[in-house]
């Protein structure tokens, strides 16, 4: 677990280095569970609106899988991995603030049946690379005035 500037970043999962979505492999199903990390959420503020493509939609890493609206941002929700959208957290769709309250467990957003996980997981941040990435990202976000 990494705490940089009070941002809790668990080290049991992967992170999209730009969009601050986490991706965790569900060992039982092989699916990728996706959510937003604490630093990304800090820059967004309170989430108030989340939309997702329908279950069964093919998604590509780096392309929109839905939209989100928050106090400090309106924009796309970018898929961290390619595959088929296989699950949507209906609780989050009804109450997006759940993501702010519990970003790493109950506030997961979507699950994806991956098609290129071995290749794409190498493009994500994980393990020992997390602390350095978080430090650099905190500095980048501060320079942008986002946090």
């Amino acid at each position: 677990m990494t705490d940089s500037g009070n941002f809790h970043i668990p080290n049991d999962r992967y992170y999209d280095p730009v969009n601050h979505l986490w991706a965790r492999v569900d060992s039982a199903t092989g699916r990728i569970v996706v959510g937003l990390d604490a630093l990304g959420l800090s820059a967004l503020g309170d989430l108030v609106y989340v939309t997702l493509q329908p279950v069964g939609t093919p998604v590509r890493r780096g392309e929109p899988v839905g939209t989100l609206e928050a106090a400090k941002m309106t924009g796309d929700l970018i898929a961290p991995v390619s595959g088929i959208l296989i699950g949507r957290n209906e609780l989050v769709l009804r109450d997006p603030s759940l993501v702010n309250r519990d970003p790493y467990e109950g506030g997961w957003i979507a699950s994806i049946d991956p098609t290129s996980w071995p290749k794409e997981s190498a493009e994500l941040i994980a393990g020992d690379a997390i602390p350095g990435w978080v430090k650099a990202e905190v500095e980048r976000y501060q320079a942008q005035g986002w946090i």
């Binding site: 106090a71 400090k72 924009g75």
Partner: peptide
């Protein structure tokens, strides 16, 4: 304006 990141 730049106060909020915005894209639709």
């Amino acid at each position: 304006p730049g106060l909020k990141r915005y894209k639709t």
